[in-house]
Design a protein around this nucleic acid. Structure first.
Lengths: 189, 189
DNA sequence: GACGATATAGACCAATTGGTTTATTATCAA
DNA sequence: TTGATAATAAACCAATTGGTCTATATCGTC
């Protein structure tokens, strides 16, 4: 009906949400199909290699959304600690809105499939790298050396990833706030 | 057959390893049964509520092992940064030995089941709290205020959890080393 | 209108899922 | 030795899993 790759889009979006919430193995194709409204024929038309290919594509899309968000925040905020704080606040709102179910869209799938699946391993590595690059750039522009910026940027993505897990477990945004505070100390000391 | 709860023990240990590596939903009961050598009858004898109960017990056991390790390290090292560094090194060796498959024994299952499963939610919350308490104590004994120590301790567990994910994705122990370094800065600045 | 490609529909598949049930066998205290 | 309890064995279950296949629409284009 109408717009051609609509089902493809819906499949990906549904996959992002479901994998993020319940994991890769914990989400059946039937559930993705039902949520997306796409027929099974379409799934295997757009993703001939099946579930794993859909997952890889879902991770890519979700990763790009995050990267774009970070880039926008980097333009808006000159100080890296401000960028991080704002992003953590956004994540907190997002967590609350999902009843603390929607954490990092990459991590859940990663922990089930990396390094067993080479495809997903490569994709997720590239995604995290893209996020780290944005933070590193912001730190460099604020006067940090390249080597130092890389370390702090890597650690920032690491810590935020951890904070999303704690936020889920504690059903609270406090871990995200605390993470922003601690990272600020590391940027400005 | 001899020693009575041997099958129970084996079931738990197998569950810890498999859930940690492939997740809760990604691990079938058949696989746990095969790895442990226990018969199916025993599984439902020891864990009448099935997979979820086994998972909860597996998390508890794994959590206690970590807590015990942290307590030992806390006795050995007076400076908290030394404790953290040593623990991160241990984790790095552990990751390497498992080909970067065995990260945090709690996180993978948590991301698939919390907060959907109330049982696992409560258990995992208590486990993380026990770890944080050990770190907080070490920080207090090194002269930090109680409030400050709590924040830094929470962040330590948060960051290490994130580092284990990055270590898995990067197939490297560098994220763990970097995390130890950054945390040291936070403890001593 | 006809063509070839894109897309959809859904029946069908073997294999596996977590779980139940019933019968049997060890174990050990009285 | 008996009797109760703990433990094991395995047949059995409905439901779901990811995936395949073939037939049919639907499409833009010549």
């Amino acid at each position: 009906m109408a717009n051609t790759p609509l089902h493809r889009q819906n499949l990906i979006e549904s996959a992002v949400t479901l994998f993020r919430t319940q994991g890769f193995a914990g989400t059946g194709l039937s559930e993705i199909l039902k949520k997306s409204g796409a027929p099974k024929g379409s799934l295997y038309h757009y993703f001939p290699k099946g579930k794993e290919e859909l997952a890889a594509e879902a991770l890519k899309v979700a990763g790009r959304v995050v990267e774009k968000t970070l880039l926008e925040l980097a333009t808006k905020h000159k100080q890296p600690e401000k960028l991080v704080k704002t992003y953590c606040q956004m994540l907190g709102q997002w967590m609350e809105a999902s009843n603390f179910r929607s954490g990092c869209p990459i991590t859940t799938t990663v922990l089930e499939t990396v390094p067993q699946s080479e495809t997903i391993s490569k994709v997720s590595l590239a995604i995290f790298d893209s996020w780290k690059a944005v933070i590193a750039n912001a730190l460099i522009e604020s006067g940090m050396t390249k080597a130092e910026a890389k370390k702090k940027a890597d650690f920032t993505i690491t810590a935020i990833g951890g904070a999303l897990i704690q936020s889920r477990v504690q059903q609270s945004t406090l871990p995200l706030d605390n993470t922003a505070s601690q990272l600020k100390l590391l940027f400005t000391s």
